[in-house]
């Protein structure tokens, strides 16, 4: 398990990461979410010791620098274009293999794994963003690490690449490894991540399972459509339910469909629809991070 405790980072007067503590479990994909400027990349850099701040991060109860070969503990992809543009893709990976004490035959294995064998002898300066991401993923996989830390790995990937990445990361975690991945593609994240860490303005907002995050969203609940919604609302006030008016009816949280159906029957309220509504990750995310955007946009005028 990766355990980060009290990570804090100041940039002059600005507090970029504020006493952040969370964990990344093995066997699971942990999504790392936050609005732009929330401090996700800085947090990752702090975890790796690339930036100096306070707090600590332990990889299986040991700091990363206590391992003789850190790149065999964690593979990283923090920036897609982190390579010299005229050095061939293979040479780029060979340097990383040398530095990590990894056998050079792994270079061709990972190039094959990410589908870059054909361009192994090409300089990556003219690679598309998607190809650059694949090279970055190859670099992360080089040391067969127990943990992967990927910052926006799906950026620039084509749909086939995104699907491959999703399956790959899920399988990687299923083999007992830990995957910590940030992404703005929330639909992808919802299909991939088991756990989520959500931050806003450098502070922890949530560290929970994906299921819990969605279940606890205000957008989750039971949708009730009824011509006598007000009567049902009055009846629900005496229960533990949380009731919100939505177009066409009510959204009720805290009671099951059975309980609401029974109450409607007892109070003589006709019900046209009674369905369990699941919030999307996007709805849950927007709800959680409302007001914590560093660069908030204006509402679109219709």
């Amino acid at each position: 398990m990766i355990r980060s405790e009290h990570l804090t980072k100041h940039y002059r007067k600005k507090l970029a990461v504020n006493d952040l503590s969370f964990k990344v479990e093995t066997g699971k994909v942990t999504g790392f979410l936050g609005p732009n400027g929330a401090g996700k990349s800085t947090t990752m850099r702090l975890m790796l010791g690339l930036d100096n701040g306070s707090g600590k991060t332990l990889f299986d109860d040991k700091p990363l620098h206590s391992y003789a070969r850190p790149s065999q503990v964690i593979g990283i992809l923090l920036e897609a274009k982190a390579f010299h543009p005229t050095r061939t893709a293979r040479q780029h990976l060979r340097i990383l293999a040398d530095a990590g004490g990894i056998h050079l035959k792994r270079v061709d294995e990972v190039l094959d794994e990410v589908g870059l064998t054909d361009v192994a002898k090409k300089a990556p300066g003219k690679f598309s963003l998607g190809m650059s991401q694949r090279l970055g993923i190859a670099a992360a996989l080089l040391g067969k690490p127990k943990y992967l830390m990927l910052d926006e790995p799906a950026n620039g990937l084509d749909p086939e690449g995104i699907a491959w990445l999703r399956e790959f990361l899920k399988n990687y975690a299923d083999r007992g490894n830990g995957v910590f991945v940030s992404s703005h593609l929330l639909s992808e994240m919802s299909q991939m991540a088991d756990n989520v860490v959500v931050i806003g303005r450098g502070k922890l907002i949530a560290d929970t399972s994906m299921a819990e995050l969605i279940k606890n969203s205000g957008h989750s609940g039971v949708l009730v459509r009824s011509p006598k919604a007000s009567a049902l609302e009055r009846a629900l006030h005496g229960t533990k339910a949380e009731v919100h008016k939505v177009p066409g009816g009510l959204r009720v949280a805290g009671l099951s469909t059975d309980e609401i159906g029974k109450l409607a029957f007892e109070t003589g309220v006709p019900v046209y629809e009674l369905s369990q509504q699941q919030a999307s990750l996007e709805e849950a995310f927007l709800e959680l991070t409302a007001g914590s955007e560093e660069f908030a946009t204006k509402e679109v005028k219709k």
Binding site: R45, L48, G49, L50, L64, H65, S66, Y67, A68, R69, P70, S71, I74, I76, L78, E79, K81, A82, F83, H84, P85, L96, A99, G100, A139
Partner: peptide, 18 residues
């Protein structure tokens, strides 16, 4: 300086424990 210009410094520093 290539390390900083092309951000490969992150690989260089995380490959080594010191």
């Amino acid at each position: 300086t290539h390390e900083y210009r092309y951000t490969t410094i992150m690989y260089t520093l995380t490959s080594s424990n010191s």
